[in-house]
Design a protein around this nucleic acid. Structure first.
Length: 291
DNA sequence: TTTCAGGCCTCCA
DNA sequence: TGGAGGCCTGAA
């Protein structure tokens, strides 16, 4: 059974670097998983969230999910944030800001996914001083090593639970290519298991409160906290500033960008704009040039 | 060989 | 309080 979601682009979401359990399928895999349409590329992705897996195929203006309407309503509608009006966010961009207008239009298929809180904490602890292909590999390694093998609705490894990681030694994740980040992940798992980091309480807090709680965790700084707030807690006012975003802000708005960029104008959906900027930076086009 | 990649922690002035 | 240095590792 198929469900169609409009105005959504899988490749743009994958390239926006917010999800590391989304893999483009090779053509034979895609054909096996979903009816082929003769397209040259597979345009199909395997997406894993918590203990669920779905195959999604890109259409000209949206995506097709291989799941029942009931599963879509229960899981994927929220996951893909289908109830947020992204067109109105794009329309709110100052028309005189050619750079922001350009990246927003170019990245219009991006959505802020609602991903699992524990997965996002671990994922962005691993992401620091790291690159996207290697983050993918690290996540795959720890899922294969410490995640539960799931065969219902697919064949994949679920994300390891806090309990399964808390019992490890601080350096035990180094063989999974985590490097010095191993101790950050293990200590975070221990904090969750001990109750020092209460994930349910974290979910109930507003953006400043959840950010403050996350910053108390060993290994979580401002950038990682903002990523968790945005991609797991759906605080759209979070605006993670990494090296790419800092570079583009300085290039487009000057070194005093904290004054020049209209943060207050876009306060309620800064995180969405951050994703357009990040995507634009990693898939550069002359059309984005502001100056 | 060196630098960099979606940072953060610790130490020291 | 703020800046420098160290940290895993692999691709460019």
């Amino acid at each position: 059974m198929k469900v169609v979601c409009s105005e959504l682009n899988l490749k743009q979401i994958a390239d926006s670097g917010q999800c590391f359990r989304m893999s483009e399928l090779t053509e034979p895999d895609a054909l096996g998983a979903s009816a082929g349409d003769g397209a040259s590329g597979s345009d199909a992705y395997e997406i894993i969230s918590r203990d669920r897996r779905v195959i999604a195929r890109q259409l000209p203006d949206g995506i097709e999910l291989d799941c029942s309407p009931e599963e879509y309503e229960a899981v994927w509608r929220t996951y893909f944030d289908m109830d947020t009006d992204y067109a109105s966010i794009i329309a709110s961009v100052d028309p005189s800001d050619k750079y922001l207008t350009g990246v927003a239009q170019a990245g219009h298929g991006i959505r802020i996914l609602n991903q699992d809180l524990w997965e996002m904490i671990v994922t962005f602890l691993i992401s620091q001083q790291n690159n996207i292909p290697r983050i993918h590999k690290c996540i795959e390694n720890i899922c294969r090593t410490y995640g539960q093998h799931v065969e219902i609705g697919g064949d994949f490894f679920a994300f390891p639970t806090p309990g399964s990681l808390a019992a490890l030694g601080e350096d035990d994740l180094m063989p999974c290519n985590l490097g010095y980040r191993s101790k950050y992940v293990v200590r975070a798992a221990r904090a969750v298991v001990s109750g020092e980091l209460d994930l349910d309480a974290l979910r109930r807090l507003d953006y400043p409160g959840s950010r403050e709680m996350l910053l108390k965790v060993y290994g979580i700084g401002q950038k990682v906290a903002d990523c968790v707030c945005l991609f797991a807690l759906h605080h759209l006012e979070a605006f993670p500033i990494d090296t790419h975003i800092r570079q583009v802000l300085e290039r487009e708005y000057g070194t005093e960008y904290s004054d020049a960029f209209p943060f207050s104008r876009y306060h309620d959906h800064l995180g969405v704009l951050q994703q357009y900027m990040f995507y634009g930076e990693l898939t550069p086009s002359p059309a984005f040039a502001r100056k």
